[in-house]
Every structure is written in structure tokens, then in C-alpha cells.
Write a protein that binds this DNA or RNA. Structure first.
Length: 616
RNA sequence: GCGCCUGUAGCUCAGUGGAUAGAGCGCUGCCCUCCGAAGGCAGAGGCCACAGGUUCAAGUCCUGUCAGGCGUACCA
């Protein structure tokens, strides 16, 4: 069914206002939607905008459809439209559903935390955005496969495995392995920076991992598997699961990197430098140099294989992108094992020592969700795809970029850091061990919720709601300055408030008598009633916009608005208390509004991965 | 140097070229003998970083300046 907004747009197009853009008027009494079309036309038509508006008004009123109650004009030349209440009712009581998109499979990669440390709040932003985007795209009819890429052969894992040997430390039994690794990883960094010999040893470890040396590969696997297990549990607390875990080691073992390397050579995309600063390395030649502040010069070519023979992150990512897990233009077999995953009924296809075929990969389109620092690398990757002869695939690879999470000075001090007063925010750094671990945050948020007397099950769900909403309500391109006081808040513009609104609605429905065939138009609506009704009727339009822009944040902000409208209605002395209303028609229509609000809130919150506890 | 992102209330953030720039927190007052006070109402608080430009109309678009962050690493 077309929405009221699209019907109005079509109506205007029929009457020569094809370019009319609709917006919400600043005051509800002007109308439900308005256009400034007459103002735009004034110069072209050489008439006063008000005159144009009034002429157009007459023309439109002559053919005014039943679903429009009023077409009015306000200075200096706005055309305003008010929908008929019965049309709003019809729209609001229809289950919202975004327009269905067509297209092949989307492989959406998110989370992808290095399996060498505990997940921190920056990873949480990634996972929440990714999981919510997957839900939104699926609601809009797309087939989405969510992959978690496990970089188990990279330098970060090498660092911890090496540190484990070098520092002679074993993961203690009484401590979480991901927390232990977090500390070990940052502890080894200064030594690696200062001591070149040590660095060489570490590089040798990395080389052995890449060559799949049995001893070192086994060590790395033991560690990274244990850490990954913890990370999956962490994300499960937010209701985040995956369709597949694709391991870098399996990509190497399947020979995908070797094939990619050959293709890059054959197509002349890369070349080996014989002289200069990059001697011995394989590079994508961009040419040119840049001059640093100290006057020294640096090559702008991008290294694919280091002079010591190990591949860079970009190289392995290219093999992943081209291989069967994503676009599948390089067809070495990649096999999987089916596993259970925490907090999800769906199985997880894991490529680690995979043994069977699985319905993974074969993407028409890929979305890679990584923070904006990776922008340049994603651009280079797309350029390499193009150069290899896959310009269409390059276009079908999208980078969903978001800004990092940094720490407020208070949050940084909370970690024991010495922060100057003038500092605005503190960047997290895994290498320095500066950051807030996801589970630590969850525990603190949960504690704040439990302190209000919430039972365990509800507290878990509310924690999830609070965290997810915190990450979603902010525009992804805005740096998120994290603060404990704000994150643990249970009032105001929070996920808890959204759940509260839904819980109130549900409780009201339990107490109110059964909704019969109410005469919805028997008495005029109160202002807050109509504002709520109007919001309910707009939901499908908002979802369409959000799906088109691939913006879960848009949904999040709209849910807050909807919850606010409901609260205004609920608290309105002209409306409540509803269950004591004596006029049956009015009571029933109000309960009808509550029912619609409740089902829409549940539906929208589910798109955000938020489940409302029935009691809180 | 070059490239990308961001400058909106004390703080954290919303804001389709359109009408009187919004929310939460914090601050000041109110409101539970009535449907869940994790709520609501009212108030104070804004040269929308700055300067030009485009436009009937600019927080929004363009140019420049300033400030912050990030990238431009044989780290991912």
C-alpha cells in the first residue's frame, strides 16, 4: 500500500507540481505536510508567491481527494496539506513495512575484532551498527549474509603469541583470556618498538604463521580461538550473532592469497621494487613522493608484500574480497564447519579447518563496516579490483564508514590516566592498552539498571537496549565521545526510556477492556492524540528513507520521537486516564492508538536489535 | 604538503535549502488519594567557529580562514 506521503506526492505531480518537495511545517496547525513550491516558482512565473499559492490551492481544492482534509496557504507562499483523520487511521493501523528492494546477496562484514584481545567500546559501535544495518536491509527484502572476519594470522595475534613465549606467561585460569591478552599485548609494545632484534623475532613468528608452520600455527590457534569464543559471548550480550566466521588462516590455507598474488602479477597491478626505500617489496605503484616536515621524502606507493615476504593486511583482504567468501571470482574451495554460537539459535559457519561445503559467499554486493581510518585502504582495494579487471565489483563494494569512539576526560581518568584539563577527548589505543572493554561497560550499565530494582532478565534486556541505543542515536560520522555518566543513565533520551514507553503501552493494553469495533471518527481528536496518530502514519515513510540511505540511526531517532509522542498523549490530562474513560467510542479509539503504538514500537525496536522486557 | 571527517545551548548530540533552530543531561520551579514518576509541565540558557559568495530564502550549498580529529606506515 502506498503511504499518504507518496499519495500526496503523486497527487501533486498530477497537477503540475512534480518538483514539489514536502516537508513538515513548523507548527502543527499549519498542516501535516507543506511545500514551498510557490516560492520557487515565483521568479519563473513573474508573480507573487502568495498569488501562485492561492491559484494552485483553488485548482487542487477542485479535485481534492477524500484522504485530504484541508489544503491551505500561509504567507509568504506555502501550500499546506492536512490529511483526513480517517486516512491517518487507516495508515497508522497498517503494519509498517519498508518498500521491498530486489537484488542478489549482500555480504555484510562487521565486528571483525582481531582475536588477540578483548573487544572494546569501539568494536561495540561497529557490531551494533552492523547488526542493525543487517536487520534493516533484511526488513527491506534484501538477502544479507553477515560475516565476521577473523584475522588470526596478522601481526596483532603474532604479537601476543610471541609475547606469550617471550614473557613466558600462560593465560591464568582465574582470569578471562581476552582480558589477559589485552594486557600482554600492550605490555610487549614498548619492547617491540625499542628493540629491533625482538621485532625481527616477532616478524619471524608472523612469517611462520603465514606459512602455516604447525607449531606456531597451533599456538596461535589455541590462543585466538579462546579469545574469539569470549568475543562472541560479549557480542551475544547485545543480541549480535553472525552467519559465518571467515578465518584468515583458512584463506591462506586454501591458497587464495597465492592465486590473488599471481593474478596481481599477471595483470601487472603490482611490481617488485629493486631499489629505493621499498627495495624487495611488492607494491601497487601510485608513484610520487611526499615531503615530511623534517624534509625527508616518502614513497606514496602502496606495499602489498613486505620485503621480508609477508603479506600486508591489504593483500590478505584482497584475497578475501576476491575469494569465494565474498565475490567468488577466485574459486579455490573454502570449506566450513557448522557450529553453535552463544545467544543465537542460528548456526555459525566457521571456516577454521572447514570440511564441508556451505551456503556462504557468492555476493552480488559487499558492505564492509570499518571505521573511517580505513577509508584510504578501502579506496586502494577498490582500485586494485578495478585494475584486476573487475570494475563492476569495485562499484559493488561499499565501505560503511563510521567515526571512532573516544573517551571523555572523565572516562579516561576513570581508567587511571592522567588527563590535562584542556583535553577534549582521549583516543583509545589497543597498543597502549587504553580503552574500555565492552564487558566492563555492560556490567556497569547493568549495575545502574539493577540499582533501580530490576530483575535479572529485564536487566539484561535493558542493558542491551541502553548500549545499542547509545551507539545508534548518534550519526555514524560523528566521533562518539564516551562518558560513563551518560552511558549508565536510565532516564531521558536513552534505550531504557524507549523500553519504558513500550512497557507502559503494554501494561495499559492489559488493563484496558477489549478493543471492539470502535467508531474512530465519532469525536474530534485531542491535539496529542492526533500528533501521535500522525507519527504512527509516517513510520513506513521513515523506514523507506532509512533503508534507502542504509541508516539505522534514522530509525533510532524516529523511535525516540514516536515514544515521545506517545508519552505526551499518555500524560495529557485531556486524554487520560484512558481505562476510566466513560465514552466507549473514545476509550476504544484511544486503546486502538495505544495498541498501534505498542506494535510499532516493538517492531521498530526489533529492527534496532532491542527487545522490550514485559516488566521492568 | 595533500586528502577525508567534524565545529550548533555549560556538556553530549539532533536538525530534507523554507516559516519562531530542537532533544537529553545539568540548573530553577512545579506535578503521584487517577492507566507504570525509568514519567510529565514550565523557565533560564544560542553572533549555528569566522569571513565572503550563490539564492526570493542558508545552521544546511560554494570559496576562503581558523580550530579539533583521522589518514597519507614494510601496523591492521
Amino acid at each position: 500500500m502506498s503511504t499518504l506521503e507518496t499519495r500526496l506526492q503523486a497527487f501533486l505531480t498530477e497537477h503540475g507540481l512534480a518538483e514539489a518537495e514536502l516537508s513538515t511545517p513548523p507548527q502543527a496547525d499549519f498542516g501535516d505536510l507543506a511545500t514551498a513550491w510557490p516560492l520557487k516558482q515565483a521568479k519563473l512565473a513573474k508573480q507573487l508567491p502568495l498569488a501562485i499559492a492561492e491559484a494552485k490551492q483553488l485548482e487542487l481544492v477542485a479535485e481534492q481527494p477524500a484522504w485530504l482534509a484541508e489544503i491551505s496557504v500561509t504567507p509568504p507562499g506555502f501550500l499546506n496539506f492536512r490529511f483526513a483523520d480517517h486516512a491517518l487511521w487507516k495508515q497508522a493501523l497498517t503494519v509498517p513495512e519498508p518498500t521491498q528492494f530486489t537484488g542478489g546477496k549482500i555480504v555484510l562484514e562487521h565486528t571483525s575484532v582481531n582475536p588477540n584481545k578483548a573487544a572494546h567500546i569501539g568494536h561495540v559501535r561497529n557490531g551494533v551498527l552492523g547488526d542493525s544495518l543487517a536487520r534493516l536491509l533484511r526488513a527491506a527484502g534484501r538477502q544479507v549474509e553477515v560475516q565476521n572476519y577473523i584475522d588470526d594470522t596478522g601481526v596483532q595475534v603474532a604479537d601476543v603469541v610471541f609475547a606469550e613465549q617471550f614473557l613466558g606467561q600462560e593465560p591464568p585460569v582465574d582470569q578471562r583470556v581476552d582480558y589477559w591478552a589485552w594486557d600482554i599485548y600492550s605490555q610487549i609494545q614498548p619492547a617491540l618498538t625499542e628493540n629491533e632484534g625482538l621485532r625481527h623475532q616477532r616478524d619471524e613468528v608472523m612469517h611462520l604463521l603465514e606459512q602455516r608452520d604447525p607449531v606456531w600455527a597451533a599456538r596461535a590457534e589455541k590462543l585466538s580461538s579462546a579469545i574469539l569464543k569470549r568475543q562472541l559471548e560479549t557480542f551475544a550480550r547485545l543480541g549480535i550473532g553472525y552467519d559465518a566466521a571467515v578465518f584468515e588462516s583458512s584463506i591462506l590455507e586454501a591458497g587464495l592469497w597465492r592465486q590473488t598474488f599471481e593474478a596481481l602479477q599477471n595483470k601487472g597491478v603490482i611490481k617488485q621494487e629493486t631499489a629505493g626505500p621499498n627495495a624487495g617489496a611488492w607494491i601497487i605503484p601510485f608513484g610520487g613522493t611526499m615531503t615530511l616536515e623534517d624534509g625527508s621524502k616518502k614513497s606514496l606507493d602502496k606495499i602489498i608484500v613486505k620485503s621480508n615476504g609477508t603479506a600486508t593486511y591489504l593483500a590478505k583482504d584482497l584475497a578475501y574480497q576476491l575469494g569465494p567468501a565474498k565475490f567468488g571470482v577466485i574459486t579455490a574451495p573454502l570449506k566450513y564447519n557448522q557450529q553453535s554460537q552463544p545467544g543465537s539459535k542460528n548456526p555459525l559457519w566457521s571456516s577454521l579447518h572447514g570440511q564441508s561445503q556451505a551456503p556462504v559467499g557468492g555476493a552480488e554486493e559487499t558492505i564492509t563496516l570499518i571505521d573511517q581510518r580505513q577509508r584510504y585502504l578501502r579506496d586502494v582495494l577498490r582500485e586494485a579490483l578495478s585494475a584486476l579487471g573487475y570494475p563492476v565489483l569495485a562499484e559493488h563494494d561499499q565501505h560503511f564508514s563510521y567515526e571512532v569512539v573516544s573517551l571523555s576526560p572523565a572516562a579516561a581518568r576513570d581508567l587511571g590516566l592522567d588527563v590535562a584539563d584542556a583535553v577534549q577527548s582521549v583516543t583509545m589505543s589497543g597498543r597502549k592498552g587504553i580503552g574500555i572493554k565492552a564487558d566492563d561497560l555492560f556490567d556497569r550499565v547493568r549495575l545502574a539498571i539493577v540499582e533501580r530494582g530490576t530483575d535479572a532478565n529485564a536487566a539484561d534486556l535493558l542493558t542491551r537496549a541502553a548500549i545499542r541505543y547509545t551507539m545508534l542515536k548518534v550519526n555514524p560520522e560523528t566521533e562518539l565521545v564516551f562518558d560513563f555518566e551518560e552511558a549508565t543513565r536510565t532516564t531521558g533520551d536513552t534505550g531504557v526510556y524507549l523500553c519504558y514507553a513500550a512497557a507502559r503501552a503494554q501494561s495499559l493494553l492489559k488493563k484496558g477492556s477489549k478493543i471492539e469495533n470502535a467508531d474512530l471518527d465519532s469525536e474530534p481528536l485531542e491535539k496529542t492524540e492526533r500528533a501521535l496518530l500522525l507519527a504512527l502514519s509516517r513510520t513506513t515513510d521513515v523506514l523507506n528513507q532509512a533503508a534507502l540511505l542504509r541508516s539505522p540511526s534514522l530509525v533510532a531517532r524516529y523511535v525516540y520521537e514516536l515514544a515521545g509522542r506517545f508519552t505526551n498523549f499518555y500524560e495529557d490530562p485531556l486524554v487520560g486516564p484512558i481505562v476510566r474513560e466513560t465514552n466507549a467510542d473514545i476509550k476504544n479509539r484511544r486503546l486502538q492508538l495505544v495498541a498501534a503504538t505498542y506494535s510499532q514500537l516493538i517492531y521498530l525496536l526489533d529492527l534496532l536489535g532491542i527487545t522490550v522486557p514485559s516488566k521492568m
